[in-house]
């Protein structure tokens, strides 16, 4: 993993004006992944979009952690269903 792809969790908290506990809670809920390198915690930039999404929902819609967990789960389900839908549509093409 390249170092420039890792963003220190503390820096993210400052930039986004969120508490460190919020990032830890998202990690504990399995919503985001945290990488620890030499005792410093980082978020991989590929996971930044997920973090931003959760932060927006938390800040803008006042959704608590339990709500974020449920939303994250349901959004993943929607994503899987969407993929399934595309796969089935492509398969349907065989019979049209």
């Amino acid at each position: 993993m390249k170092n420039e792809e890792l963003i220190p969790a503390d820096e993210i908290c400052v930039r986004y004006q969120v508490e460190r506990q919020f990032v830890s809670s998202l990690y504990e809920s399995g919503i985001i992944e945290i990488v620890t390198v030499q005792e410093t915690e980082y978020i991989h930039c590929d996971h930044l979009a997920d973090f931003e999404k959760m932060m927006r929902l938390h800040k803008e819609l006042d959704i608590n952690l339990e709500g974020l967990e449920a939303i994250n789960h349901l959004l993943k389900q929607i994503q899987d269903l969407h993929k399934d839908n595309i796969r089935l549509r492509n398969r349907l093409g065989l019979y049209e």
Partner: peptide, 15 residues
């Protein structure tokens, strides 16, 4: 606004 924002927020309505 809160009620409608929760319904239509782009993060909750991907694509």
């Amino acid at each position: 606004y809160r009620k409608l924002a929760r319904k239509y927020h782009p993060d909750l309505n991907p694509n």
